[in-house]
Write a protein that binds this DNA or RNA. Structure first.
Length: 462
RNA sequence: UGCCAGAUAGCUCAAUGGCGGAGCUGGCGGCUGUUAACCGCAAGGUUGUGGGUUCGAGUCCCACUCUGGCAGCCA
């Protein structure tokens, strides 16, 4: 039976016989024997394997054991006589599964740029950096489920195809069964979606929130965790056309409870990932961003700053820094303002609450002053907005008026309004961009490097 | 989508309008319980695409394509 390298590096004992399977990272040929570094993805570190000339077909094999080749090796573990590793594997048999021609294999025994690795998306997971990223991404996902499951939140599966262009947020991808060379049109030459698969225009979802609210009014506490889509032509280091979102929704909860949950949530994820992936996190701190561990410590051990939008505006007006965009009550905070608050002023995650009603979505609960809504954004240093949430408007008449005021048709939201018509409750929730969390955690500069197969404008090859 | 920068060897980058270079990788040889080993040798090029200016263009001009950064939109 083969064992995972991560397990052997941690628990392997000298003089035990083991077998491993993995890919050659490097080969160092000496006169009397050869060192191989084998990686199977289970850990950042490689297992050092010692090949001696007594190995069958030693000379012939050596020529084929190049970076990228896949192998199964069995042998005996031994305490390493040299520094650099606790144990090593002395090979007795070696099976070569697949060679990797060193003349054409793109991954070299050297550092590559992220831009180059994006061009070989099918091979980049075999590098140290991407191995660490995707292990940490997995640990984040597991920690998220654990956090909610421990608190009796129900994981609800909201649809990927949706008819509601909810929130009026962003451009949406249309889902159609039409033959695009023969699209039915009506007399006005408009596309006739009544003849389409769903009988009306359908889209890829931009958020599971409305459906999560449906489920929260039956199960009290729920969360979604799945892909969402935006057809925006955004070309930045923190936007994707397809990304994963986490959206908890809680019945009988107000904005303070929402913020408390969000803060506990982020603390739990950072703590769990640090415990589970210490080597990977150390790697990020050394090679990617030397503030990663300090940031994690800051998140885990400090209270987040909480300010109202009105207070934030006052602080920005007092700031000595010159901003490109104006600071004025009623205008939305720009990236530079968010970064100033989180990075320079408070130097930690900052929750801004109670935004002007005009710049936020219709479903956010109107405050008694009728000028602000019970919304909150959590601003993270470097990343900007990582969580956006709100207490939802639970009053039917107020919600209907808000929909109308935003130029939307209440009829399109009939089932959403029914939630307020029948057994309405105060409720609140938030949305977390999963890739932004992984970015924040790892210090990776570009969001396209924290998702295995990034989708963005002109980017869909792998 | 806007602004800015860039595209030269497999990778990362140099090259005053005048003979296209280096380091690394890969190849060959040597050496060593090695650690992204080390030493030596050789090899490696339609300078992103299409036009233009010029005696002469990697270099200057125009267009296009792609990449990166920032911004907008947002998570």
């Amino acid at each position: 039976m083969t064992e995972k390298i991560a397990h052997l590096l941690r628990h392997g004992q000298p003089d035990t016989n083991v077998a491993i399977q993995g890919w050659v990272r490097t080969k160092r040929e000496l006169k009397e024997f050869t060192f191989l570094e084998i990686n199977d993805g289970s850990a950042l570190a490689n297992l050092q394997v010692v090949l001696e000339p007594s190995l069958p077909d030693y000379k012939d094999l050596l020529k084929k054991l190049n970076t990228g080749a896949s192998v199964e090796i069995s042998g005996t573990l031994a305490a390493s006589p040299a520094k650099g590793q606790r144990i090593e594997l002395k090979a007795t048999t070696l099976q070569l599964y697949g060679e990797a021609d060193p003349e054409t294999y793109p991954l070299q025994k050297k550092r590559h740029s992220m831009e180059f690795l994006r061009e070989i998306g099918h091979l980049r997971a075999r590098t140290n950096t991407f191995g660490a990223v995707f292990r940490v991404r997995n640990a984040c996902a597991a920690a998220i489920h654990q956090f909610f499951q421990d608190r009796d939140f129900l994981w609800v599966h909201t649809p990927i195809i949706s008819a509601s262009d909810c929130e009026g947020a962003g451009e949406m991808f249309t889902v159609t069964g039409f033959n695009l060379n023969k699209i039915p049109r009506n007399e006005a030459q408009e596309i006739d979606y009544s003849q389409d698969f769903f009988g009306r225009q359908a889209y890829l979802t931009v958020s599971g929130q409305l459906e999560a609210e449906v489920m929260a009014t039956a199960f009290s506490n729920v969360y979604t965790f799945g892909p969402t889509f935006r057809a925006e032509n955004s070309n930045t280091s923190r936007h994707l056309a397809e990304f994963w979102m986490v959206e908890p929704e809680m019945a009988f909860c107000d904005l303070v409870g929402d913020m408390d949950l969000a803060e506990a949530f982020l603390k739990h994820i950072f703590k769990t990932v640090l415990e589970r992936c210490p080597e990977d996190m150390e790697f990020f701190n050394q090679r990617i961003d030397n503030s990663v561990l300090a940031t994690a410590d800051n998140i885990i051990n400090n209270q987040f700053e909480r300010v109202t939008y009105t207070e934030a505006i006052a602080l920005l007006e007092k700031a000595k820094k010159k901003f490109e965009y104006p600071v004025k009550w009623g205008l939305d905070l720009q990236s530079e303002h968010e970064r100033y608050l989180a990075e320079e002023l408070f130097k930690k995650p900052t929750i801004v609450t109670d935004y002007p009603v005009e710049i936020k979505a219709f479903y956010m609960r109107l405050s008694d002053d009728e000028k602000t809504v019970r919304a909150m954004d959590i601003l993270a240093p470097k990343i900007g907005e990582i969580i956006g949430g709100s207490q939802r408007e639970e009053r039917l008449d107020v919600l209907e008026q808000r929909i109308i005021n935003q130029g939307l048709n209440p009829k399109d939201y009939w089932w959403y309004l029914d939630l307020r018509r029948f057994g309405t409750v105060p409720h609140a929730g938030f949305g977390l961009g999963f890739e932004r969390l992984v970015q924040f955690m790892t210090g990776m500069g570009n969001i396209r490097d924290v998702i295995p197969f990034p989708r963005a404008p002109l980017t869909v090859e792998f």
